[in-house]
Amino acid sequence: MATPRRRRLGDQLLQASGLFVMVIALGALAALLFDVFVDGAGRLSWQFLTSLPSRRASQAGLATALVGSIYVIILTAVIAVPIGIGAAIYLEEYGARGRMARLIEINIANLAGVPSIIYGLLGLGLFVRAMGLGRSLIAGAATLALLVLPVVILSTREALRTVPNSLREGSYALGATKWQTIWTQVLPMAMPGILTGLILALSRAIGETAPLITIGAITYVPFLPDGLSSPFTVLPIQIFNWLSRPQAEFLRNAAAAILVLLVLLLTMNAVAIWLRDRYQKQRTA
């Protein structure tokens, strides 16, 4: 039988080690941010944001990558949103019981766990080669759209589930059809949740590097993308490119670009959280 002091010690040890782990993890995050900031903040400037890449580190800029990232994300959203929301509506409102629906659900859960680089291989084989789209903006966006599709579907379903059934019943009792009920009642009520999930999914996509490298987003693109079939690059690939050079100036560029990427991510996440909080309040008015 342990003495009281020894028993308390075990508890304190466990608690302390848990806390220790937290501190290390937080410390790592803080070190990362601090390190990036120290290395790169000095390099940030308007010139940096608006110049095209160059072989001279001091003249190289983020313009192509930044514009490329924005284009890609918008295109990805355009493709993934209707398909993702449509699929979620079907699974949640129409097909809940059938065997086909179960199969689709299992499939989507599996797709969510496939490494992102495999999606790159899919994009390479399908969009770039088989469909002949080449290493273009549209191929990249299509690939990313497939990557975020499972996440969009899952989060949209969550949002649809929060709509209480009594709402649907009230609508049916007044003579509305299924689609009328979905379009006029369910979707509007679920929309804030859907948007939040969407923004979070896109914020993950904007940091994705591997699938886009695989489909051939070239790492040195000294011009702005000029159309759907144009070659392009994105922020994380530009960072990767600069990281692969040994010269210290390029490494500084990489740090500065990371800061830009992090600010972009922070903004997107903040918007998503603000949306969610605002409509939480409205719902419980």
Binding site: S166, E169, G175, Q185
Partner: peptide, 25 residues
């Protein structure tokens, strides 16, 4: 028509709640 045990007004304005049935029909 039907009225339910737990009232289930739509999360819209009072006017829009009553108008809903009129609109969809």
């Amino acid at each position: 028509g039907m009225v339910f045990q737990k009232s289930n007004p739509f999360p819209k304005s009072i006017f829009e709640n009553v108008a809903y049935g009129l609109r969809i029909n």
